[in-house]
Simulated scan of single mutants.
Amino acid sequence: MLGGGVEYKSLREVCKTLPKGTLKKDEVNQTSQYPVINGGCELYGFYDKYNNEANAFTFSARGSAGFVSYFNTRFWAGGLCYPYTSKNENILITKFIYYYLKSQEQNIMDTLVARGSIPALNKSDIDNLKIPIPPLPIQEEIVKILDTFTELEGELEAELKLRQKQYKYYLNKLLSFENDGGGGLVQWLEMQEVFDIRNGYTPSKAKAEYWEGGNIPWFRMEDIRTNGRMLSDSIQHITKQAVKGKLFPANSIIVATTATIGEHALITVDCLANQQFTFLTKKQTVGNKLNMKFFYYYMFIVDEWCKEHVNSSSFASVDMAAFRKLKIPIPPLEEQERIVGILDKFDELVSDISLGIPAEIQMRKKQYEYYRDKLLRFEE
């Protein structure tokens, strides 16, 4: 902890609000120059114009509400985020503010985000956040230290991306069934023929009895980011009183169909998830024809389909009518098991957080969060 007596001011006092503008999905692409941030944790795409200069941070206002991003290049701020920069870099460094807010991100999500059908964050609540103002040399040193951690993690992630690219090549090759040799061994069925498809939901945060002492897993995007795509428990839990009807059964797939679209996980316990996710639960009539671990891998292809079939509106969501009719392959069970065996080995190398590069990245993240929180803890 650094010395006490640090002055705090509200965000509105030390930061200026930057311009933003709504873009339709068909206006962005992956080849233009300027990144576009909107309501998710990831970029919305790229655009050939920008509405903000470099050295700014944004809050996601919808969907992944409360997520904080920093931009060191010119960028386009969409309508579903709140962009800011420091009013005076000689008093308060924008990147220092970003690092401080990142340390408070989970608390912001837990306390300020309204959990309706779509999680939302009000700008007035953000403007009232208190920001510490230590001496400028201390800010500069903190930014330098945390930048170093970020760069080291970035190098590891770049190497991991190369391995993931190789993994994706083999995954697509193994899961391409468009031509099965004419033997008709692969059956193609619509999603709605194979799965019960239902939305997750968020129990009322106003009712303490829904949350206090709960032991039922309730999954959010944070669970995937923290613990990967094979999940047996969640970060947050709910009580039986919070459940409407029945829990979603174990061995269901959750897929994000709003906000951060195209992320999925295989859940191995009875559970609930928030409304960002759609549950895919295998119908009883399908029985042993489908190995859910095989479908978990095929979902990487479905993820890409989801990203390309989004309703054009101010809030991105998958075209669910088309999703229900999307045809998926069901090869013979022996072939499913053969593919699972191969992809499990690749998956260990690029996804298992207890092994190799993923394990080192996790260690770096924990170190970074430890020092970030220690460096950014001040007394008024």
Rank of each mutant, 00 (worst) to 15 (best):
I131H: 07
T22L: 15
D352A: 03
T17N: 06
A256S: 06
A273Q: 10
A208L: 13
Y368H: 13
G245T: 15
K25M: 13
N311S: 07
F346S: 09
E348R: 12
E193Y: 05
F67L: 13
S313R: 05
I357K: 03
N38I: 04
Q139D: 04
K289M: 03
N90K: 14
K165H: 14
G5H: 15
A65G: 03
A158N: 12
G262C: 05
M299S: 06
S354A: 10
T148H: 09
L280I: 09
E380K: 13
E178S: 12
V302Y: 04
E155P: 10
P19A: 14
H309I: 07
N199G: 14
E105C: 11
E379G: 13
Q30M: 14
W188M: 11
A256Q: 02
I97H: 01
L23A: 02
L266N: 09
L136Y: 04
G182K: 04
T202H: 11
D127K: 05
E151D: 12
T258H: 04
E379K: 14
W211A: 11
D180N: 11
Y167R: 08
F195Q: 01
L101E: 01
K20S: 04
I216Q: 01
L80S: 11
N52R: 03
G45M: 06
N172H: 09
L156P: 07
I267P: 04
Y47Q: 02
Y70P: 08
K16S: 04
Y370W: 15
R115P: 02
C41S: 08
E140P: 12
A265E: 03
P203C: 11
E105A: 10
Q139S: 13
R229E: 05
I216H: 00
D223V: 04
N55I: 04
T202F: 09
I253K: 00
P358S: 02
R229W: 05
S32N: 04
L231E: 03
N72P: 15
V14K: 02
R338V: 02
D125H: 11
L185M: 06
I97A: 00
G45L: 08
F67R: 02
G78K: 10
T258P: 05
R229C: 08
M363W: 15
V310I: 07
Y82T: 11
T260D: 01
D373F: 12
C41E: 06
G66S: 10
F71Y: 14
K49Y: 06
T268P: 09
G228C: 07
Y50L: 13
P331H: 00
T268D: 09
G79L: 14
R220Q: 10
G228I: 08
M230I: 03
N107T: 15
E337N: 15
S317M: 08
L326C: 13
R229L: 03
F46S: 10
N90R: 12
I224H: 09
G183C: 13
A242R: 02
I197M: 12
Q33W: 13
I353R: 11
L156Y: 06
I353H: 10
A120V: 12
E7W: 15
Y296G: 07
M363Y: 15
L18W: 01
S234V: 00
L189D: 00
Q276Y: 14
P249F: 01
Q166H: 05
A61L: 01
E335G: 09
M221I: 08
L171M: 06
A114N: 09
V194T: 02
E27M: 14
N288Q: 12
M299C: 08
N311D: 07
